[in-house]
């Protein structure tokens, strides 16, 4: 029984951190209506930044995270401004070529990192990375708990930002109706740039929080792209609450899967669920509740 309990708790905690990454993606998808397959690569770059801060300057990963977020905000804004935004201006037969552009960006980011760090597996070990506390008979990992709490704080802050500040409301307006926002005098190109930057910063934050739980290597980005996608589709695009719900669902499903289903088919189950949601629940999990 407490195996189940422990599985659920660690899935829940993990899911909170996944949600942070997915919120970054859902923000970008909601405002720009694009499919961003480079999101995981941004997570990966964020993780490496935090890693360097730790190894070179002995900055605690939870502090390094802020440096990483700042850098990724700048990187994301630049990518949006000078690469993705260009596609708005060109007349292409297939609008889907933006998807391919993000694949290209992801390739470049991954290979640049590989060029610098090689393909070695890296990990961060701080004083408390292996620490656990006991809840009755169930052991709960300390870095996971801290990560979860920070992720929730960030999610709440983002929620406040989107609902209480002018810029936040402008972002929501643009997500809802781009054309109407333009007519209201919103500088849409500035808003999309900031949104992409914000999304990237959240990716970096999520990645940094997950750093103690994952081995770091350049290709880890694909893993996070896939997860963020599943969560975003589950949660219904462009919704922060949905992403949170989707993140927790995926975290719990994953950790149940790892405990009870064979490793090999675990990913198949995830993909099948993804397909089914895509086909039959266009609004994500929420569409079940609303009906």
């Amino acid at each position: 029984m407490h195996l189940l309990g422990q599985t659920l708790i660690s899935g829940f905690l993990l899911g909170g951190m996944y949600a942070l990454i997915a919120i970054g993606m859902t923000l970008i998808m909601g405002v720009m209506k694009i499919v961003n397959l480079a999101h995981g690569a941004l997570v990966m770059v964020g993780m490496y930044v935090t890693y360097i801060c730790f190894v070179l300057w002995h900055i605690n990963p939870y502090a390094g995270m802020f440096i990483s977020m700042l850098l990724l905000f700048v990187l994301g804004s630049l990518i949006q401004r000078y690469m993705i935004n260009r596609l708005v201006e060109v007349d292409s037969i297939l609008p889907e070529n933006q998807v391919l552009l993000t694949v290209g960006i992801s390739l470049v980011l991954t290979e640049v990192i590989r060029f610098i760090f090689k393909s070695d597996y890296l990990s961060v070990s701080t004083g408390f990375s292996g620490k656990t506390v006991f809840l009755g008979k169930m052991s709960v990992s300390v870095p996971m708990t801290i990560g979860f709490v920070i992720a929730m704080v960030f999610t709440y802050l983002l929620h406040l930002f989107l609902n209480r500040t002018d810029l936040g409301m402008t972002i929501r307006a643009t997500a809802q109706d781009r054309d109407a926002a333009v007519y209201m005098g919103v500088n849409v190109s500035r808003v999309t740039m900031i949104t992409f930057g914000l999304g990237s910063a959240f990716a970096a934050a999520g990645g940094s929080l997950l750093l103690p739980m994952f081995y770091l290597w350049p290709d880890i980005g694909h893993l996070f792209t896939a997860k963020a996608f599943i969560i975003t589709i589950l949660g219904g695009m462009g919704s922060t609450a949905g992403a949170l719900l989707g993140g927790l669902t995926l975290g719990i499903a994953e950790s149940l899967g790892a405990t009870y289903i064979s490793m090999g088919y675990k990913d198949v189950v995830g993909l099948v669920v993804f397909l089914l949601v895509l086909l039959f629940m266009p609004g994500g999990i929420k569409s079940l509740v609303k009906r």
């Binding site: 690469m83 260009r86 596609l87 060109v90 007349d91 292409s92 037969i93 070529n97 933006q98 391919l100 552009l101 694949v103 290209g104 960006i105 992801s106 390739l107 470049v108 991954t110 290979e111 640049v112 590989r114 060029f115």
Partner: peptide
């Protein structure tokens, strides 16, 4: 050698940005 994938990625981005069709 090792940088070939990087060069390839850059090529992808350039093609889509400047030769969309």
């Amino acid at each position: 050698g090792a940088a070939s994938v990087l060069a390839f990625g850059i090529l992808v981005c350039l093609v889509i940005m400047f030769l969309p069709n």
